[in-house]
Design a protein around this nucleic acid. Structure first.
Length: 258
DNA sequence: TGGAATGTTCGGCT
DNA sequence: AAGCCGAACATTCC
């Protein structure tokens, strides 16, 4: 579920409730929800709620809590405890619940936000994006999903971006000509910004920190629409597997011309 | 009814 | 080195 626009939305909707509050405790109800060691946080101030790639970062004085949402993770302001509540961050007033059905998500601690991932898709310059693509022979869809190449894109937005750029998902990155790279860069920003403005995509059960679903799924052009008609040319949309991930595209608009 | 698929990521293997 | 594969997990859908 949560890719860049959803993590951004969760971080933003959480911010007004939690920034400036003092932490009372962090409690875990599932061992695998804790990633590594987390010190006693009592009395630390929660300074900021922001995003890093697909993760929500809660900046405290002296360190950061990095929340990986995995496939089904959510952070809810004053969330009701349920069977899938894996952790609770109690504040001097109110609390944040971390719910995660499939348990692919986790919460870790670090002195500062690690810099091991690739650049943010909304911050990378076109020149750097171009230079990084030129070095790689991998297929463009695979590369967009690689968090060390760019941090934040997942399966939905990779497919939507490639459709908007009219690029076939199997195209080797270094075979993209200058025009296509320029288009890819522009539509990547455009799709992500529109998705954030819509509060992200709610495919099944994603909601923001206030429990509100996103609306961007209404604007998906190809994701989840295999067998339907291309909104641009009318041909039947296809679904194939690339790197074990289902990949949706239009065989008419996204030609394999390389 | 069972098998396949689902938004992610990591490690191991070639 | 890059890329494929399976595993971690729970639920839904055909």
């Amino acid at each position: 579920m949560p890719e860049l626009p959803e993590a951004e939305t969760i971080a933003r909707t959480l911010a007004p409730h939690v920034e400036g509050r003092l932490i009372r405790s962090i409690r875990f109800f599932a061992p695998r929800a804790r990633r590594g060691m987390i010190p006693d946080l009592e009395g630390r101030r929660l300074l900021r709620s922001r995003r890093h790639g697909k993760q929500v970062v809660l900046e405290l004085d002296g360190g950061v809590l990095m929340v990986k949402l995995g496939m089904t993770g959510s952070l809810r302001w004053r969330g009701p405890a349920g069977p899938y509540t894996r952790a609770l961050l109690e504040l001097d007033e109110g609390w944040i619940s971390f719910d995660d059905v499939r348990q692919f998500g986790s919460i870790g601690w670090a002195p500062e936000c690690p810099r091991s991932l690739g650049p943010d898709p909304l911050e990378v310059s076109e020149e750097e994006f171009r230079a990084r693509l030129a070095l790689r022979s991998a297929r463009i869809k695979t590369l967009l999903l690689d968090q060390h190449f760019l941090r934040g894109l997942g399966n939905i937005y990779a497919d939507e971006i490639l459709f908007a750029a009219a690029i076939h998902p199997l195209t080797p990155a270094r075979r993209l000509d200058a025009e296509r790279v320029g288009r890819l860069y522009q539509v990547m920003r455009d799709v992500l910004e529109r998705a954030i403005a819509a509060g992200g995509s709610s495919i099944s059960d994603y909601v923001d920190a206030d429990g509100r679903p996103g609306n961007f799924q209404q604007f998906h052009q190809v994701y989840g629409r295999a067998g339907g008609n291309c909104p641009r040319c009318g041909r039947t949309l296809r679904r194939i597997l690339i790197a074990q991930r289902s990949t949706h595209f239009c065989p008419g608009c996204q030609k394999q011309n390389y």
